[in-house]
């Protein structure tokens, strides 16, 4: 289906931005190609690997499958926007645990972890597994991701 370009105004990382694109453009590609926010990654394009995770009104969403036309005035936060005054506690926990290997999936992992901790300040192992099972890490950093989430929850960092 050929969709003509349209103008959209988005609220991204507390800033109003305007872009022109086809309305079915996934937020992921608008962020990366048009807004230069490349911290959000492409991994699968079908919302099952979690690399593209961002927040929409504080909830973790897969930006690869979220069309621009569905966002309206909802607040979008990307990895570039989580540490407003320096590093976010979850980012600090990631550093303390030395989590990343290649690092490519970690933006998405961190965004999922922050969304989890905002809803559940003291997640159990099962809660962590449930919240994080949508995020694939091919390097296999899962053990440290789990530890970092627990550290962040108990304010060790």
């Amino acid at each position: 289906m050929i969709l003509p370009m349209e103008k959209f105004t988005l609220n991204i990382n507390d800033q109003k931005v305007s872009i022109e694109c086809a309305p079915d453009t996934p937020l992921l590609w608008a962020l990366r190609d048009q807004l230069g926010l490349t911290g959000t990654k492409y991994g699968c394009g079908i919302a099952i690997c979690g690399s593209c995770t961002v927040h929409m009104d504080g909830t973790a969403v897969r930006s690869c499958s979220l069309p621009i036309s569905a966002i309206n005035d909802k607040a979008i936060t990307t990895i570039e926007g989580v540490g407003k005054d320096g590093l976010h506690p979850v980012q600090k926990a990631w550093i303390a645990e030395n989590v990343p290997q290649c690092g490519f999936c970690q933006s998405g992992q961190i965004m999922s972890a922050i969304a989890l901790l905002e809803q559940n300040g003291n997640p159990s192992d099962a809660d962590i597994e449930q919240a994080m099972s949508g995020n694939i890490c091919r390097c296999g950093t899962y053990i440290r991701i789990r530890s970092a989430i627990k550290n962040a929850a108990t304010n060790k960092v």
């Binding site: 926010l37 490349t38 911290g39 959000t40 990307t78 990895i79 570039e80 540490g83 590093l87 980012q91 990631w94 550093i95 030395n98 989590v99 990343p100 690092g103 970690q106 933006s107 961190i110």
Partner: peptide
């Protein structure tokens, strides 16, 4: 720790 650690967790890498 790896040289790129902070860049990775902030999405700058």
């Amino acid at each position: 720790v790896i040289y790129d650690l902070e860049d990775i967790v902030t999405g700058k890498a």
